[in-house]
Simulated scan of single mutants.
Amino acid sequence: MEPFLSNFVHNVDSKGRVSVPASFRQALASRGNRDLYAMQSITRPAIEVGGPDLLERYEAQMVAADPFGETYQDLALLAYGDGAFLKFDSEGRISVTDFIRQHTGITDKIVFVGMKHFFQLWEPARFEAQRAAARARLSAPVRKSSPE
């Protein structure tokens, strides 16, 4: 299976559609995915997108939890209540719906970010801030242990 790799900035057209990067469409095709499952990220202002296997990962966590317990209820609420199926049009575009816009702040540009097994949709400025913060967190231990 091809990983979802790299990041791409694309314009949202006047009808609210955006072209999914060709390499991401190829990665989906290599998995045999024609439908996209999308979920609002639990921890970030991004939408996580993948094939049915993305939903199956959340469902596997739910199976391991007590169906009457809080963890199960939280996972179900987010996986189903904050999830949606997206459809490609004939030109490989998806619609940037209110479901996406309200959680991310996306307006006229969108960043597609590869996450190996799935990809994320970000508003460009929020993505840049998140990437800078991640780089700072990961480089802090390196800077501390480096001789000066």
Results as ranks from 00 to 15, higher is better:
V9F: 02
V12I: 03
V12H: 06
R17Q: 01
S19Q: 08
S19W: 07
V20Y: 03
V20L: 01
A22L: 12
A22S: 15
F24D: 01
F24M: 05
R25G: 01
L28Y: 08
L28F: 10
A29Q: 14
A29C: 09
S30P: 01
S30K: 12
S30A: 11
R31Y: 09
G32C: 02
G32F: 07
N33A: 13
R34F: 08
D35G: 11
L36A: 02
Y37S: 04
A38V: 04
M39R: 15
Q40V: 14
I42E: 13
R44G: 04
R44K: 13
A46L: 03
A46F: 00
A46S: 15
I47C: 05
V49S: 04
G50N: 03
G50M: 02
P52H: 07
P52T: 11
D53L: 10
L54M: 11
L54C: 06
L55C: 02
E56W: 07
E56N: 13
R57V: 08
Y58D: 00
A60E: 15
A60G: 14
M62Q: 04
V63L: 10
A64L: 11
A65H: 09
A65C: 13
D66K: 09
D66T: 04
P67W: 01
G69R: 07
G69L: 01
E70N: 14
T71W: 09
T71S: 13
Q73D: 08
D74C: 12
L75S: 08
A76R: 13
L77K: 11
A79E: 03
Y80I: 06
G81E: 06
G81K: 08
A84W: 06
F85D: 15
F85C: 10
F85H: 15
L86R: 02
L86T: 05
K87D: 14
F88T: 09
F88P: 06
D89T: 03
S90C: 07
G92L: 06
